[in-house]
Simulated assay, not measured.
Amino acid sequence: MPVRDFVVWAARRSHSRDLLVPRRPKVDPEELDEDSHWELLQQCLTDTALPLEARTARAVLLLFGQHVTRMAALPADALATVDGHTVLILDRTPHPAARTPRPPPHQAHPAGAARRLTAHHIPVRPARTTVLVQLAQDLPPAVLAPMLGLHVITAQQWRRRAARRLDRLP
């Protein structure tokens, strides 16, 4: 338990007097450089040595910045084959010609999904940060929030971070 939390807890229960413990400043999460981001995405499309579910999870992460918990919640039939192409179906009405590939991806616990992505050399947090900053540069928070399932305040925070990043560019 961080010291600040303990001091606040103790003061609220009259175990100590009120003390001021400053908050630790937030550190912006690390991002991937643009070349690394596109190289990882290219591997999703071409590296058949990676399991299909790892390639799919990696693509969803690198394209949409989705949190691992959302990827783990995707149903097994979200990955299907349509006209000989593997597709990810994210809406509730699948294409009539869609059929689930063999073997289908399985639903997984988010921690396990994160470990599997990391085992396949996918830096989850930096990848997600990179994508969210890129999307926030191009989309207003009112569009970004519902598109990615974010709270509008969270989308505004990503937009501010994207603006700070643009200010630092030469």
Rank of each mutant, 00 (worst) to 15 (best):
A119I: 12
L61R: 12
A57S: 12
H85Y: 13
D5S: 13
P104N: 15
R70G: 00
Q156A: 09
A142G: 00
R161W: 05
A145M: 04
C44K: 08
A97D: 10
A113V: 11
D33N: 10
R58H: 03
R164H: 14
Q137R: 13
A136Q: 11
G84I: 14
V131R: 03
V87M: 13
A73V: 08
R128P: 00
V27F: 04
V124F: 12
A142F: 06
H85E: 11
R116L: 15
D138T: 12
P126V: 15
E39V: 06
M71N: 09
T100P: 00
P141E: 04
P141I: 00
D167N: 04
A162N: 01
V60I: 15
E53M: 13
G65K: 10
T100D: 03
T81W: 14
R13P: 02
R92D: 02
R24M: 06
A97M: 04
R115A: 15
E39N: 00
L88G: 00
L79E: 12
G149I: 03
Q156K: 09
E34Y: 12
R115N: 09
T48Q: 09
L139D: 02
F64P: 00
R160D: 13
E39K: 06
D35Q: 07
R161L: 08
H151N: 04
G149M: 05
R70E: 03
M1L: 14
P141D: 05
T69N: 05
V143P: 01
P22T: 03
R102S: 07
D28R: 09
A162M: 07
A59V: 04
A163V: 11
A162R: 07
F64L: 12
S36E: 08
H37A: 12
L139Q: 13
S14N: 08
R55S: 01
H106F: 09
